[in-house]
């Protein structure tokens, strides 16, 4: 929510920032002797701080790349113990993981769950955030707080009572339970991201449409709908990524046949009686990350955040 405001501000501030390019350039306290000379020691300390920052970034990236590359290497390797690299390379772990864990089915379940959660949370959340953004009504603060709670409270805190209820209703280990459980943080998330987005839209647009005789249905479908599409898509992507990655809640209610990908990887890593061969797990983990990356790349093709901001600003200007 804040990002949008901030993005707008930074965009509006952009021309000013470029004008003052020469002024803001000496920010690293190398040039501009006038301002930095009097507290000279501070200017000097700023210099090492740059190096510390870069060293931190480097360490983080080494760790990150090490993690990613070692999992990929492991998933293609055979007989890899104390050497630098595996002695042989093979793709057979992927084939084995695919058949052993019925990954086709697991991925299908993951997609069905993710898409249902996205669709339902948008359908439930967007109208609610419209009401929250546009109306004042009694207990509005209480309602807002209620929508905020599932995002702040740890998933396990509401997950365990919720899962108990699910088992009591005989929904345990069904896809429906997995979808319902994942909706709990997703709907509030949509509401929280969409409310400021709708607040940014100038109500004069809707009023103009109503004054011209448009009914509510038309206002929503023809006027608000197109303006909201970028925001809805952005919220949808975030919910999608969260749902595919959601472990805690899914793990509580899923079982064999209804596990999503993350959960089945976790089960493979911790399976009783000695966990599965490591490369098998690596292959699955890499498949998961590849799936996530592909989803994000496809999603970012359709949603251009800058375009989103520009469109909202057009609305504001009118």
């Amino acid at each position: 929510m804040t990002t949008q405001n901030v993005d707008r501000r930074s965009q509006e501030g952009a021309p000013g920032a470029t004008d003052s390019g020469p002024l803001s350039l000496p920010d690293p306290p190398v040039k501009n002797p006038g301002a930095d000379r009097s507290p000279g020691d501070k200017a000097l300390s700023a210099q090492p701080s740059t190096w510390v920052a870069w060293a931190g970034v480097a360490a983080f990236l080494v760790l990150l790349m090490g993690i990613l590359v070692s999992v990929v290497t492991d998933s293609f390797g055979r007989a890899w113990y104390a050497q630098w690299l595996p002695t042989e390379f093979t793709a057979s772990w992927y084939a084995e993981a695919w058949t052993r864990f019925e990954l086709g089915h697991v991925i299908l379940v993951t997609l069905v769950v993710a898409i249902s959660v996205v669709a339902l949370s948008i359908l439930i959340g967007v109208p609610a955030s419209y009401a929250l953004a546009r109306r004042q009504f009694p207990f509005k603060r209480a309602v807002t707080a209620l929508f905020l709670l599932p995002v702040i409270i740890p998933p396990i805190t509401f997950g365990i009572p919720l899962a108990t209820v699910m088992y009591n209703f005989g929904l345990g280990r069904t896809v429906l339970a997995v979808i319902l459980v994942n909706l709990v943080p997703s709907v509030p998330f949509v509401i929280i991201t969409m409310t400021p987005f709708i607040e940014q839209i100038n109500p004069a647009i809707e009023n103009a449409a109503r004054m011209s005789g448009a009914r509510m249905r038309h206002v929503f479908l023809r006027i608000l709908g197109p303006i909201l599409v970028p925001g809805i898509l952005a919220a949808a992507i975030l919910v999608l990524v969260r749902t595919v990655g959601m472990f805690e809640l899914t793990y509580l209610v899923s079982g064999p046949g209804t596990d999503t990908l993350v959960v089945s990887i976790f089960r493979a890593m911790t399976s009783a009686g000695g966990s599965e061969p490591r490369p098998l797990v690596s292959a699955m983990a890499f498949l998961y990350t590849a799936m996530m990356l592909v989803t994000l790349i496809i999603a970012l093709r359709f949603v251009n955040p800058t375009q989103l901001v520009a469109r909202v600003r057009d609305g504001d200007d009118e």
Binding site: V71, F247, R278
Partner: peptide
């Protein structure tokens, strides 16, 4: 690159740490 870990997920991170930072890992 700094934002990449968001796509990694906890499970790959865990697996990668076990391999990369384990006793016989590259680190």
């Amino acid at each position: 690159l700094l934002v990449l870990p968001i796509t990694l997920g906890t499970v790959l991170t865990a697996q990668g740490l076990l391999i990369f930072a384990g006793r016989q890992g590259w680190l």
